[in-house]
């Protein structure tokens, strides 16, 4: 760290440190709840706090029993199975339709661009309970309520705004002369798309897909209304666990999910850097 200039007053110095302390406190506030559940999930007892054995780092205080519960309980098994059955399909729907639409939206000649954009982003803004209620009534009427297909459709809609936002952001830096160059060299529009455009916007598409995936994977309100007992997902199981009685198994699930978000965050970060590099923005 560079030293203070000669003219800095005591107040300047105090403020410099005070400000860093404030920021540090906020960072702790952001990270502490997430980090604290990780050691707690290895708790040997049924408590939600650090036992004296854990604090003294006694191996007796730690165990994997909550993880064993998680992987042995049929409820959690079914929930995991359902989550991994719903999220990827929903993601696939929102990514394929969303990427096409984002390409259309970023063309200069798109009519009604703004209102259409507003509609496509709205699933992110409308309170989930309203979307859930609307879908519940409508899907019951057409017989999709309580079906796998209904939940996938609902989740696909929720993922759309994220795909649109990330893909249009990547396309905004896309150099149009590249497609023209490709066309002048004799490639048709389809070949141009797959050989020139797609590789360049791929990072945006994938990070949109990751957003859509986590949205579906972490979604509970819609599943509660549109789903059924057979379609219980991980968040549903966590929600009912948190509402009824807190079992330490939830901490184990939470730790698994935190690891998943660390992986996803790393992927998105790598993709963002790659995309900047590809577009010559460097980092």
């Amino acid at each position: 760290m560079k030293g203070f200039p000669a003219y800095a007053s005591t107040w300047d110095k105090t403020w410099h440190y005070l400000f860093r302390i404030i920021c540090c406190v906020v960072f702790i506030f952001l990270m502490f709840p997430i980090l604290v559940i990780i050691p707690l999930s290895f708790n040997a007892g049924n408590l939600f706090t650090f036992t004296p054995e854990m604090l003294s780092l006694d191996p007796e205080g730690y165990s994997l029993r909550h993880y064993r519960n998680l992987f042995e309980s049929p409820d959690w098994q079914v929930a995991m199975y359902n989550s991994f059955r719903i999220a990827p399909v929903a993601t696939l729907v929102s990514v394929s339709l969303g990427t096409l639409a984002a390409i259309g939206l970023s063309q200069g000649h798109m009519p009604f661009k703004h209102p259409i954009m507003a509609i496509l982003i709205s699933p992110m803004i409308v309170p989930l309970i309203i979307s859930a209620a609307g879908m519940f009534f409508f899907y019951s009427r057409i017989g999709l309520q309580g079906t796998y297909f209904g939940v996938v459709l609902a989740h696909a809609v929720l993922g759309v705004p994220f795909v649109i936002i990330t893909v249009t952001a990547t396309l905004s830096g896309f150099d149009k002369s590249l497609t023209r160059a490709s066309a002048s060299l004799g490639a048709g529009p389809v070949r141009t798309f797959f050989k020139v455009q797609m590789p360049l916007i791929l990072p945006g598409v994938i990070s949109g897909a990751l957003f859509a995936f986590i949205t579906s994977f972490d979604e509970v309100v819609i599943v509660l209304f549109v789903g059924s007992a057979k379609l219980k997902t991980l968040p549903w199981e966590m929600f009912s666990g948190l509402r009824e009685q807190l079992s330490p198994t939830i901490l184990a699930v939470a730790t698994v999910l935190v690891s998943l978000s660390v992986i996803l965050l790393t992927l998105v970060e790598l993709l963002r850097r790659r995309s900047q590099r590809l577009r010559g923005l460097s980092s």
Binding site: L97, H109, S131, G134
Partner: peptide, 30 residues
């Protein structure tokens, strides 16, 4: 060109209108 751009957006727009906007408006009438 306009038509081509619109055709790219149309499937998603239709999807969002049918499975999201429509149901919400329908519920509001209740």
């Amino acid at each position: 060109q306009k038509l081509r751009a619109f055709l790219l957006v149309a499937p998603l727009l239709l999807f969002v209108l049918l499975s999201f906007v429509g149901p919400i408006i329908d519920m509001l009438f209740r």
